[in-house]
Nucleic acid binder design. Structure first.
Length: 504
DNA sequence: TATGAGGGCGCC
DNA sequence: AAACGGCGCCCTCATA
């Protein structure tokens, strides 16, 4: 067994003759950092230095000792019933992530360059318009300067404008939207903000990070969240723009290799299904069993109308409600997001919880158990310490409560997709759809023998690059594995999209 | 020149 | 007034 830190990096570096076989239940890897993350996902770092200092202080004055760290971790994993999750999910996931990072995803450099130009010239235009409209140049990217221009120089009214945490006048998109009609320059600032963000955060960095074969390689951080999700870094490929005209263009820059297609497999409403399953709420479960439009069903309930009478407006409100409930949203936040007034928002939330009583009950149960024990666990033992639940600062306690009710849901959804990834990877290997483990990547960057490559994981979505001739077969195999990766009290559904690029 | 906080915003 | 869970990255600006 390999025992170390950063095993994913070491696996990536393995030239290796024989590929490591992943017999289930046979631990091949023991990543100490990941183990400590399962034990407590709120550590500052998961480095040998930090953990030694923290956990070996008494024994060795903080001297590094991997063997000892490993022993401590093993004991805790057992005590916390995390062994299954560790040995059968997180560790088998290591080589899967390593492979995904190594393969990378292909970009269309010419397309990106042209997009860059288009964005650049529109931004230039906007800058001119904004300077002219506000009587002189200033740094539009500086909230401080922008605020001064708008609210002092241009005398835009402050009605409905909020302050930032630091007490300064906010210039965020919500604020700009409310003052949109008070000065003609505001709409141009809004457009500038959007385009500058896309260019500086996505279009430019992606071009810079592409390798010789125009592929970009993210790094997945397995210890990067408190709920069990992965995070993605440098570049973050889990926050590529999705909504909007320009966003679509950016997605089109992610392409499949010649002879391949991109295919995305998306868990449908996974967190809501998990919530229905965990809470056992009969109405919610029935809706999923009948494969109903869940937001529409929710709308029918909270508005007390038959399904046929649900308008798109009602559905939108219900959708916000469904999402909000998973996050522990209060009336205030719901009012803001939905555009309703506070009293109405409050009523809707009350109506929701009276229609879906078990959800409320489940949330209360989670909170009270967590208050007593100081931590919250999900179905697979994934754990998060939340000592702030009993804080005398109400704000802190409330935040901890929301985290407490969210973690078992988000965490189980994370488990499900991780399990699916491990199973799909095993199937790909079994069917010899990927030679990645044994064959070197040729100069071209194309391994012609690869049939199916797992590229990205975006919380509830897996993105693959699949050879044309096998696309149909691969699709049904992957869907089947994902939908049956984990048994819930409701069906698990996966939606598929296929195309030459990610613009779908 | 490097660093970190603050403000802001992209995704699920 | 008050923000709803989980992330990473951009720019500005003050400070070292």
């Amino acid at each position: 067994m390999l025992i170390d830190f950063n095993l994913k990096e070491k696996i990536k570096g393995l030239k290796k003759k024989g590929s490591p076989s992943l017999h289930s239940g046979q631990p091949q890897y023991f990543d100490i950092g990941v183990a400590f993350w399962l034990i407590n996902p709120d550590e500052e770092e998961y480095t040998p230095e930090y953990l030694s200092q923290k956990y070996l202080y008494k024994e060795f004055g903080g001297k590094k000792d991997l063997q000892l760290l490993c022993q401590i971790a093993e004991k805790k994993l057992k005590e916390y019933k995390l062994e299954k999750l560790f040995y059968e999910v997180e560790m088998p996931l290591l080589p899967v992530l390593a492979e995904m990072e190594k393969i990378g995803i292909k970009l269309d450099p010419k397309f990106l360059k042209s997009l860059d130009k288009k964005l650049g010239s529109r931004i230039e235009e906007l800058v001119k318009i904004i300077y002219k409209g506000s009587g002189g140049p200033f740094n539009i990217n500086s909230p401080k300067q922008l605020g001064e221009i708008l609210f002092q120089k241009l005398q835009v009214g402050l009605k409905g404008v909020k302050k930032t945490k630091g007490g300064k006048i906010s210039t965020d998109v919500e604020t700009l939207m409310t003052i949109r009609d008070r000065h003609p320059v505001v709409r141009h600032i809004l457009e500038y903000r959007e385009l500058f963000k896309l260019q500086s955060t996505y279009v430019k960095p992606l071009q810079a990070l592409a390798d010789k074969n125009s592929r970009v390689h993210t790094t997945y951080i397995q210890t990067g969240t408190t709920t069990g999700r992965l995070s993605s870094q440098n570049p973050n490929l889990q926050n590529i723009p999705a909504e909007g005209e320009w966003a679509k263009e950016i997605r089109k820059a992610f392409i499949a290799e010649k002879g391949y297609q991109l295919a995305s497999f998306d868990y449908s409403q996974i967190e809501l299904r998990v919530l229905a399953s965990l809470s056992g709420d009969p109405k919610m479960i029935e809706a999923f069993n009948k494969n109903l439009d869940i937001h529409k069903m929710t709308a029918a309930n909270v508005f007390n109308v038959p399904l046929e009478k649900v308008t798109s407006e009602m559905r939108r409100t219900a959708k916000t409600l469904n999402f909000g409930v998973v996050y522990g949203m209060g009336a205030m936040a719901f009012a803001k997001t939905s555009g309703l007034d506070f009293a109405k928002a409050k009523n809707f939330i009350e109506e929701y919880f009276s229609d879906f009583k078990r959800i409320k009950e489940w949330q209360e149960k989670v909170k009270s158990q967590a208050r007593i024990s100081g931590y919250v666990v999900n179905l697979n033992g994934r754990r998060r310490w939340l000592l702030e639940l009993t804080s005398m600062f109400r704000q802190q306690a409330a935040e901890a409560e929301r985290a407490a009710i969210n973690m078992p849901v988000q965490g189980l959804a994370a488990d499900i997709i991780k399990i699916a990834m491990v199973k799909v990877a095993a199937e790909i290997k079994k069917r010899k759809w990927l030679n990645a483990d044994t064959s070197p990547v040729p100069q071209s960057g194309i391994r012609g023998s690869d049939k199916v490559r797992m590229l990205l994981t975006i919380h509830d979505e897996l993105l693959f690059e699949i050879k044309d001739d096998i696309i149909k077969e691969a699709e049904s195999v992957i869907v089947k594995i994902m939908e049956s990766a984990y048994e819930l009290e409701v069906p698990v559904k996966v939606d598929v999209k296929i195309g030459k690029n990610w613009g779908f």
